[in-house]
Simulated scan of single mutants.
Amino acid sequence: MNVKERIIERLDDIHDPQLLEELLNAVNLEHEIEHIDQLSDPEKAAIDEGISEADAGNLHSNSEASQLVKEWLKK
Rank of each mutant, 00 (worst) to 15 (best):
N2H: 13
K4F: 08
E5M: 12
E5S: 05
E5N: 05
I7N: 15
I8D: 05
I8F: 00
I8P: 00
I8M: 14
E9Q: 11
L11T: 02
D12K: 13
D13I: 07
I14R: 07
H15L: 05
D16P: 00
P17M: 04
L19I: 10
L19S: 03
L19M: 15
L20C: 00
L20W: 01
E21F: 05
E22H: 14
E22T: 07
L23F: 02
L23N: 10
L24G: 10
L24N: 07
N25F: 07
N25S: 02
A26T: 14
A26F: 06
A26P: 01
V27Q: 03
V27N: 09
L29H: 02
L29E: 03
E30Q: 10
H31Q: 10
H31N: 04
E32H: 10
E32M: 02
E32Q: 09
I33L: 11
I33C: 01
H35Y: 03
I36W: 04
I36K: 04
I36A: 10
I36H: 01
D37G: 05
D37A: 12
L39F: 11
S40G: 09
S40H: 12
S40N: 02
D41V: 05
E43C: 06
E43Q: 09
E43K: 00
K44T: 05
A46N: 03
I47M: 06
I47P: 02
E49V: 15
G50R: 06
I51N: 14
I51Y: 11
S52P: 03
E53D: 12
E53G: 03
E53M: 14
A54E: 02
A54W: 06
A54C: 05
D55E: 11
A56Y: 15
A56S: 09
A56W: 09
A56R: 15
A56I: 08
G57C: 02
G57Q: 04
N58F: 13
N58H: 08
L59M: 09
L59G: 03
L59P: 00
H60K: 14
H60Y: 11
H60Q: 15
H60V: 11
N62Y: 12
S63N: 15
S63T: 12
S63M: 09
E64N: 01
E64R: 00
E64C: 01
A65V: 09
S66F: 01
Q67W: 03
L68M: 02
L68P: 00
V69A: 06
K70S: 11
K70H: 11
K70Y: 12
E71M: 03
W72Y: 13
L73C: 10
L73D: 08
K74G: 14
K75F: 05
